[in-house]
Simulated scan of single mutants.
Amino acid sequence: MQLTERARNYLSTLKRDPAWITAAAAAEKYLSKYRLTDSGRLLHIQQQYSGYTFTEYENPDYTVRLRFLSDVIIAKNKKIYYTTVNGKAAFAMDNGKETPDYLLTEDGAIAYYDDEAYTHFCLYESVEVMIEILALEKAYRHYVTAPVKDLQITDLEAFKNNMHRQYSFLKECSDSIQLYWQTDFDIICVAYNAYDDAYSLHIRSIGNYYSDLILKQFMEDNLYI
């Protein structure tokens, strides 16, 4: 997945720790011992993004450090945290610490372990989607955030088609966990919570007047609980 210009510009504002940048051949040889079906996705992430720290603009406590492989790990053949998520190999995103907060699956998804549910949940289907969302949120950080609302969605495809007809879909920011649309005045996100098997509505607008218009439309469509 190629990043948009907005995401590339956002990435250029971040510092990258050179200690977590490695030669491609060395990283490929190191990963070969895990006998992955295809290490290409992880190698791409290592070369393009390892060493970056990603932080939500409105929530600085939410930080994702992508410190996957380093020359020290490879040279000393150190073990890194390894498990499986939904049948896929998964590694710690931050191998600079012993206990991982987030996991990177072999197909490039970002997951975490929920202590209450005793299972893993996916946060983003790709690193690129995470970067695109963070770039979008930073670009529209001056927008007003409306209260989060629960949604009643019984037919997801019908809901998406209805949204597509009314708003501009932001494919680069969307996956099965979050869907984004945009208007001239708003950023609309519909997020899926796998733990509760429920959807929620997140709106950022130039002002409350515009977010209220969207909420009114959702209520008329019997989508807003």
Rank of each mutant, 00 (worst) to 15 (best):
S126K: 13
S174D: 04
T105I: 01
R35I: 00
I133R: 15
K88F: 03
Q166G: 00
I203H: 08
N77F: 02
F159Y: 15
N59W: 08
G207N: 11
K15I: 03
F121A: 12
A135Y: 10
N208S: 11
L215F: 04
D155C: 09
K88I: 00
Q217S: 15
I225S: 11
N208E: 15
F121K: 14
L36M: 05
Y210C: 03
E98T: 13
T55W: 07
L11Q: 02
E116H: 15
A90N: 11
L69S: 08
Q182N: 03
E116G: 06
F185K: 13
A146W: 00
K29H: 10
D221H: 13
A158P: 00
I74T: 07
D101A: 09
S168G: 01
I131A: 01
S174E: 04
K171R: 09
Y209S: 10
E132N: 10
S39P: 06
A90E: 06
Y209L: 05
Y180W: 04
T22S: 14
K138A: 05
Y113S: 05
I188W: 00
H164E: 09
V127P: 01
I177W: 09
E137L: 10
Y102F: 12
Y199N: 07
C189H: 02
L66F: 06
Y209G: 05
D101F: 03
N86P: 03
A23G: 13
T83I: 05
K29S: 10
T119K: 13
Y224M: 15
D186S: 15
R141T: 08
Y195H: 09
Y224T: 10
Q2M: 14
Y10S: 01
T13A: 13
G96F: 03
F68S: 01
L215M: 09
L3W: 04
T145Q: 13
L3E: 11
V148E: 13
E106V: 06
L201N: 05
F68C: 06
H44M: 14
T53W: 04
A135S: 15
I133F: 04
E132V: 05
L179W: 09
I131N: 09
T4S: 15
L136C: 06
V85M: 13
T63M: 11
W181S: 02
R141M: 06
E56R: 13
H164A: 10
H164G: 00
R16Q: 15
A111F: 00
N222V: 04
T145W: 02
P18N: 14
A19E: 15
H142R: 14
C173P: 03
R204Y: 10
I153P: 06
V190W: 00
D114A: 11
Y113I: 04
Y199G: 06
F68R: 03
L3Y: 11
M219S: 15
A27F: 01
S39R: 12
T22M: 03
K160S: 02
E132I: 04
W181Q: 01
K171G: 00
I80M: 01
I203W: 09
